[in-house]
Amino acid sequence: MKSIEITANSVEEAIKQALDQLKLEREQIGIEILEEGNKGFLGFFRTKQARVRVTEKADAVFPAKDFLEEITRRMGVKTNVQIQEEDEYIKMTINGGNNLGVLIGRRGETLDALQYLTNLVANKHSQERKRIIIDAEGYRKRREETLIRLAARMADRVKRTGHRVVLEPMNPQERRIIHTALQNDLSIQTLSEGEEPFRKVVISLR
């Protein structure tokens, strides 16, 4: 992450120079004012220079936002992507348009593809890997609720019949939702079987 200190006649001027040097936009940086500086009196007295430290923000974020908005535009859906930085990941929410279903796809497969490609582009030039999660129309949340209900129903079936239940193939995030949902049920156990991308959760009696 780039960071520089600039001294100039005013804080504004120092920030402007820093942006030029770093080749960044205003919203891509954090600003720390080290010295306010003052203009002096009518220019007669010695002026005190302003000094600022400008630091590039989590550099993965902005190219990723542009990339995602640009793909969706080219897919024929005009969107506005909102960014929320969490400790572990960056959440990007796709807003706008009435065609967001196109961006989600069957079982979220298009959303997952967009998320995968955006992660690749965002982390292409940065050593520090930032995980990006993309959502639209609250799909991820709804899918999580569906999976939790499914997990409970299948766990009941296992207990009733004594037979193990093999769920359909899921990606790692979805499998984790199932494992987590059932981890406190001591009468059953869950594990994953098979190879990606066909890995499945298996629920059985403990």
Partner: peptide, 20 residues
């Protein structure tokens, strides 16, 4: 790896095309 990027590109392109 295992054509994962190619698959994602195809998924996005197919979604874009499905509209019209």
């Amino acid at each position: 790896k295992q054509g994962r990027i190619a698959k994602a590109i195809r998924t996005v392109v197919r979604a874009a095309a499905a509209k019209d």
